[in-house]
Design a protein around this nucleic acid. Structure first.
Length: 618
RNA sequence: GGGGACGUAGCUCAGUUGGUUAGAGCGCUGCCCUGUCACGGCAGAGGUCGCGGGUUCGAGCCCCGUCGUCCCCGCCA
């Protein structure tokens, strides 16, 4: 069958629009054939566009010409149909479709385009493997779920823009081709044709530009900014991603918090979720480590408990736990009834995981039913139970699993044990176990309400991080982060770098870091001191950030800001498990775009123009 | 860089201890069908078992290597 020309025909409605109230209207729909049901002289086509699906009926007795078109049509053909909106009979309604009370009786029908049989059907709920989906991304994006995800993304981005503009922010763009900024990740580089041997770097974030915009007097800046980092990928990490990047002049930390919370409220509202009006809870970095063993606690799970004080010297002797060693416990809720055998198996599994790193799991238990830690004395179990309950402020249920951990001093890794390291390790185990049972026992079941989302601010990150490899102190955030004023005054910058707290903060949602920011250094003398404290000579600082240090000399206001990952926000709102579900054209774990087949080789001419030689062996 | 899972028809997957001609569902093609909506019925086509090597009388299955996708660690402040 020949294809038809569109001519001057115009679409009057979208495929999800029509209702019983449109009865009798003559409409023109255009869309893709979602499914075709051929009964011989009667054919049904489900016509799909991104708004929905409408059933179109072709009756040979009524219109043989259009019926012939429907006979030729196949899934994913592009079809235009003009016809009358007709109520369906009592037995013919489809309550599962929004348009299920009506159908369009086809008149003039145009086959606007045909389609090869697709490798997988956008109409099916079952999804193909990711390789195929990515190669035929245009077909994958036709799927209802993906169309929904990108509708959410668009609405969320718009809500954030509206909110920030309403708060007096200006959206200002910054360059993609720029100079390496000190974010700590590997840069994507762009060779310069005009300047042999020189390269632009794609921004890891607009950090320096937004600070300079503060110097320029744009006292409230934001940008929906693309960022690029050449590091290995994860489900929640893509080489290019989008941040809501903002900066404020003359802020207190709470100014930044209120702004970020404000646009998160707006963003969630755009996705149909009304967050409570109370401010997000706040927790210092030290507190987060002590209670959760991680700097991005998942507040849907109870905190860990330090049981060290609960164990009397006698109990320690009985249990062969050396005096002075920390003992940590935690509870994973909703694990369900585990039999003694299952618990034993779990215990040995955990011990395998922990084996080499010097921690030992004393035992696991169901506390409520008093099915206590088997090798632990009853008295001890009771105290542990009491301590956990008190610490969590929550009532234990019979389905909760309790785990108690202590270091093993006979393991080489423990000879120089570091308290924080132990806490982090136990925190990791806590998450691992939660993950293990999450699906099985619906630990994180979504209710579709604000209750699913536990936000918090983590504040007072350490300013410096000891780098074991280079034996130097590195900036934990980035070198423009301001330290606490007291820690400057006290001389800790020089004498006790490990104790210096930064005016840096993360916003965390359900164990995911959504965004991160800081109050910046606005004085040149302080900035120079920080560079020196990081072991950077004045000359090196000048050569790397000279332009920025210059800018600081011309009246820089106090300023600070934050950047939040838009992709991650949308991923969570869409209930997706990977950023690839909310990025239209994402890359694989090896940073390849399977659809366009990028990256690709450059031609000899391109390389010559760019003054490059490729060494394929390294 | 390291660890793990997977790779069989267009898609989703099964394939026993290594043994005859590698199967199913969906999809696809043709025919039939006027109330289906995951329509139904009949018939049919469709395979480099990711790729390369090895062991064996014989390999989808065992061994070695390699490629790809996914997940995790490192890395990404």
């Amino acid at each position: 069958m020949k294809l038809d020309f569109l001519g001057t025909l115009e679409r009057t409605h979208r495929c999800g629009d029509l209702r019983i109230s449109d009865e009798g209207k003559t409409v023109t729909l255009m869309g893709w054939v979602n499914r075709r049901r051929d009964h011989g002289d009667l054919i049904f086509l489900d016509l799909r566009d991104r708004s929905g699906i409408t059933q179109v009926v072709f009756d040979k007795g009524l219109d043989a010409e259009s019926h012939a078109k429907a006979e030729a049509a196949r899934p994913e053909y592009v079809v235009a149909v003009t016809g009358q909106v007709t109520p369906r009979g009592f037995d013919e309604k489809n309550p599962d479709m929004l348009t299920g009370d009506i159908e369009v009786v086809a008149g003039q029908t145009l086959l606007l385009n045909d389609a090869k049989t697709p490798p997988f059907s956008p109409a099916e709920d079952a999804i193909a493997n990711e390789e195929v989906r990515l190669k035929y991304r245009y077909l994958d994006l036709r799927r209802e779920q993906m169309q929904k995800n990108f509708a959410i993304r668009s609405r969320v981005a718009m809500a954030i823009r509206n909110y920030l503009v309403g708060e007096g922010f200006l959206e200002i763009e910054t360059p993609f081709m720029t100079r390496s900024t000190p974010e700590g990740a590997r840069d994507y580089l762009v060779p310069s044709r005009v300047h042999p041997g020189n390269f632009y770097a794609l921004p890891q974030s607009p950090q320096i530009f937004k600070q300079i915009l503060m110097v320029s007097g744009f006292d409230r800046y934001f940008q929906v900014a693309r960022c690029f980092r050449d590091e290995d990928l994860r489900a929640d990490r893509q080489p290019e991603f989008t941040q809501i990047d903002l900066e404020i002049s003359f802020p207190q930390m709470k100014t930044v918090f209120a702004t970020a919370e404000g646009f998160l409220h707006a963003a969630f509202s755009a996705a149909g979720i009304e967050l409570p009006s109370e401010p997000f809870i706040q927790m210092t970095y030290d507190e987060a480590i002590a209670k959760y063993g991680i700097d991005k606690p998942d507040m849907r799970l109870p905190a860990m408990a330090d049981l060290s004080e609960e164990l009397t010297p006698e109990l320690r002797t009985t249990l062969k736990i050396e005096q002075g060693l920390p003992v940590l416990g935690f509870v994973i809720p909703k694990v369900g009834e585990l039999s003694g055998t299952e618990r034993k198996k779990l215990l040995s599994e955990i011990r395998t995981i922990f084996g080499d790193c010097g921690l030992d799991v004393l035992d696991t238990a169901r506390l409520r039913t008093n099915e206590a830690f088997v090798p632990l004395a009853d008295a001890c179990a009771a105290k542990i139970s009491a301590a956990l309950t008190a610490f969590n402020g929550a009532t234990l249920s019979a389905n909760d699993l309790a785990v108690v951990v202590t270091p093993k001093l006979d393991t080489p890794a423990m000879w120089n044990f570091d308290r924080q390291w132990i806490w982090k390790r136990v925190g990791a185990l806590r998450l691992e176990l939660a993950k293990k049972y999450a699906d099985k026992h619906k630990l994180f079941e979504q209710t579709g309400t604000a209750k699913d989302f536990k936000f918090l601010w983590v504040t007072d990150f350490p300013m410096y991080e000891w780098n074991e490899e280079s034996k130097t102190w590195d900036a934990a955030h980035h070198p423009f982060t301001a330290p606490h004023e007291e820690d400057i005054k006290s001389g800790a910058l020089v004498n006790d770098k490990g104790s210096v707290r930064a005016l840096a903060y993360d916003v965390v949602l359900n164990g995911t870091e959504l965004g991160s920011g800081s109050i910046r250094i606005h004085r040149k003398d302080v900035q120079a001191e920080i560079f020196r404290s990081l072991g950077m000579s004045d000359e090196e600082a000048k050569s790397r950030f000279g332009f920025f240090l210059d800018a600081l000399e011309y009246g820089t206001p106090p300023h600070g800001g934050i950047a939040l990952g838009l992709d991650r926000i949308v991923m969570i709102l869409a209930g997706a498990n990977s950023l690839r579900e909310v990025i239209a054209f994402p890359k694989t774990a090896k940073a390849i775009d399977l659809m366009v087949d990028a990256p690709s080789e450059a031609t000899a001419i391109q390389l010559r123009d760019l003054h490059l030689k490729v060494n394929t062996r390294s």
